[in-house]
């Protein structure tokens, strides 16, 4: 879809910044706020910009995890914003590996909205929130193991193929 803007003055080319305005965001594995900038329509965004500004004034992230109403300590539903099957399925798998968890499932209420719900029901030994936190920690450990093994395998392969 093409959007044409007729401008009288050519935008000044990228200038070197003597006083650099650095975003706090790192270049890789971006926080979700970056998505907003890319998908905003060129023309009709006057109102939206004001809303964005109010929420992200201090460049802090919007709260992306919410406890849904009707949750008890051992049976809770969480709502994640800007998450989908990528994290949902992986998180569900890891949380299900926890023997204290009786039930864990994730669902995406509507594909047009970027929301994901996770329901965790635990036995009496632990709370749902603890299970969720353990799941997130286990996921990070898993990523570390994958990275290490991948780098080792690559080195072995490169060494084997060059010799």
């Amino acid at each position: 879809m093409a959007k044409a803007k007729v401008k009288k003055d050519e935008p000044t080319a990228a200038e070197p910044a003597s006083d650099v305005v650095m975003d706090e965001a790192p270049t890789s594995h971006q926080p979700e706020a970056a998505d907003d900038g890319m998908s905003v329509d060129a023309n009709e965004n006057e109102d939206d910009i004001e809303e964005e500004e109010d929420e992200e004034e201090e460049e802090e992230e919007v709260q992306r995890v919410r406890l849904l109403p009707g949750s008890t300590p051992t049976a809770a539903s969480f709502e994640f914003l800007n998450e989908g099957h990528t994290l949902g399925n992986a998180l569900r798998y890891i949380i299900m590996k926890n023997p204290e968890v009786e039930f864990c499932a994730y669902a995406i209420p509507h594909p047009s909205e970027n929301k994901m719900n996770v329901r965790i029901q635990t036995f009496e030994g632990t709370t749902a929130i603890e299970a969720l936190q353990k799941g997130l920690r286990d996921l990070q450990e898993l990523c570390d193991v994958v990275t290490d093994k991948f780098i080792d395998a690559r080195e072995r392969f490169v060494a084997a193929s060059s010799s």
Partner: peptide, 14 residues
């Protein structure tokens, strides 16, 4: 400005 432009600055000097 014509309404389609929505915010683009118009350099009237040209």
């Amino acid at each position: 400005n014509s309404p389609a432009i929505g915010g683009g600055s118009f350099n009237a000097g040209q």
